[in-house]
Design a protein around this nucleic acid. Sequence first.
DNA 1: ATGGCTGCAAACACTTTGCATCGGC
DNA 2: GCCGATGCAAAGTGTTTGCAGCCAT
Lengths: 140, 140
Amino acid sequence: MSARSSALETLRAAGRRITPERDLLVRIIDRNPHLDATEIYRLARKTRPRIGLATVYRTLNLLKELGVVRASELGEAHRHYEVRGDEHVHLVCSECGRVVDVPAPKRLRAQAEARGFQVERYRLELIGRCADCAARCEES
Amino acid sequence: MSARSSALETLRAAGRRITPERDLLVRIIDRNPHLDATEIYRLARKTRPRIGLATVYRTLNLLKELGVVRASELGEAHRHYEVRGDEHVHLVCSECGRVVDVPAPKRLRAQAEARGFQVERYRLELIGRCADCAARCEES
DNA sequence: ATGGCTGCAAACACTTTGCATCGGC
DNA sequence: GCCGATGCAAAGTGTTTGCAGCCAT
C-alpha cells in the first residue's frame, strides 16, 4: 500500500474528509521528504494555485496528529516534514543542506529504557559535511 | 575552571567586551540548563530589570558563535540553550517536560563517518515519559 | 443539506535589526 | 575617547486563528 493511499485511509478512519488539497499535500510530502511548510506550499501552488498557506499548516498539523507525518527541525532551521516510516537518523550537511537518512540504531532506546525512561519517539540529527562537500573542501 | 569564567575568558580571547549583561546571562545559562530565551530574559530581569530581550538574543547568538552554548529545540518547542560540555542525549519527558541528560554513545559518530559523512555536531532527543511520570501513569 | 474545510487576512509568537545612547577598554 | 554593546521600538519570519463561503459526505 502506498504511503499516499495509507494516509488517505487514515484520514477516512479518523472521520476526516478527503479533500483535493489534502490529497495533493500528502502526495507532495510523500515524494519529497524534508520539505518545510513554505516549500510544500510553493510546490502545491503549481498544481493548485488557489491553495492557501493556512491550509498547508492546518493539513500538516492534522497529519502530524494522525501520525502520518513527523516534523523535525533540521540543523537549526525551520520545521521539516516527512511521512513517518521506520525510525531513522538524519545526516544533515552543513554545506549543501542535503539530508541523508540512515536506519536508526536500536541501542539508544534500550539505553534510555534501562533508566526507566519510556521512549515514545526520538529526534536525531547529525550535522556535518556530506561526502561530496567534504571532498570539495579537501581539493580547494 | 567554572563554566562562567571559561566563557568570559572566551569572550576576552575573541576580543569581545565583558559586560555585566553578558556575565549575568552566562551565569543564568550555566546554572539553569535548557531554558529558552524568554525564560532567560525573565530570570535576567530579576537581577537587572532594565535588560532588553534583544540583548538576550544577541548574547545567545554570540555565545553560540563562540561555541560557549549550544541551542536545541526540545520536543517540538522553542529553542533552548545550555553551556556546551560533553556531548549528550536529551531525554525529554512528554508529560512534565523535564529534561534529563545522559552521556552520548560514541558509535553514532562512527557509523555516520563510515559513510563518508564528517560529523560536526549532533542533536539527539528522545521524547517519552520519565520514570516518575511513567509511575504516575501506572497507578492512575 | 449540514458540518467540516478552505482561502483570505489579521493576529501571534519568536527573533532580528536600526538607531541613539551608554560604558568597557 | 573610541567603538562596541545596550535598550527600545519597529520590522521580519514562521505559524495560528477568525470568519464567510464552499464542497465532501
